[in-house]
Design a protein around this nucleic acid. Sequence first.
DNA 1: CTTGCACCTCTAGTTACTAGAGAGATTACA
DNA 2: TGTAATCTCTCTAGTAACTAGAGGTGCAAG
Lengths: 148, 148
Amino acid sequence: MLTIGKLSDAAGVKVPTIRYYEEIGLLPEAERSAGNQRLYGQKAQERLTFIRHARELGFPLDAIRDLLSLSDRPNQSCAAADAIASAQLAAVEARIARLVALKAELERMLVQCAGGVIADCRVIEVLGDHTKCHADHAHAGHLIEVAG
Amino acid sequence: MLTIGKLSDAAGVKVPTIRYYEEIGLLPEAERSAGNQRLYGQKAQERLTFIRHARELGFPLDAIRDLLSLSDRPNQSCAAADAIASAQLAAVEARIARLVALKAELERMLVQCAGGVIADCRVIEVLGDHTKCHADHAHAGHLIEVAG
DNA sequence: CTTGCACCTCTAGTTACTAGAGAGATTACA
DNA sequence: TGTAATCTCTCTAGTAACTAGAGGTGCAAG
């Protein structure tokens, strides 16, 4: 049986994060020692490793919750898991496209800002000038998250 | 003078977001009409457009705050703005690399998950199997944000 | 046996917003 | 001019996915 710190090292997930996962029900409530400390076995470690891998692949916790409940019923069709992963793939592709455009714009800004004074700085100008705006107003995005 | 809704349309930033930006000091406190409604002029619109573009390029609000304070003092060297943009470019490149690897992994999972049963599902298996773990434990990333 | 690290719970903070309630302001049309 | 529809106002609370800190207890090594 591992204490939370050992589990943390073994799975590569920080201690407070493990407690947080328990709190939101991603991990079951841990057994406790006589002194009220959490104790974990093999299964908990596997489940946590699963979660970490999925997080690293950018799956949101809700999707992970779904995947975990799927893996608890291994005789069903793979289709649901496939759908979750496909959705994730699409999201990742969209993010990549967005970031590549973004990179080009930043490079353009930097090339044109060659040691001048702020009044002439393209970094400031590109961001402020509406006529150089290529973005889609109507669908201006809100923020998403991604494993870094 | 624009009311907040017109400004929202003009700049492509939602009304509550504009109020939020005012609250956190990214936008100055707006003038008010006799009936206490916010009124905005050309300058506010430019500033908000600047903020939107910077957000779309992935700058966090803190960096935008810095950029704005730079653009408020236009006779200084461009170096600081350049540094912010450079840092941002490096971050973007790192995110792209990360996402491309991630995409490959997701595609691999999906190709191998061809309509079977969950017990054989690569999506589940890859996430759960530690031996297939390529990630760097020690530096397992926390989450960052990115304009979507 | 005591020192010191690991663990406990709890609250609050983070980022960048979004949603909703309940009330007042403005505008458009009849 | 009236009134209905649409803004706008403030305020609180919620979102994701944690992180940080306070104040207190357990446990293992020297």
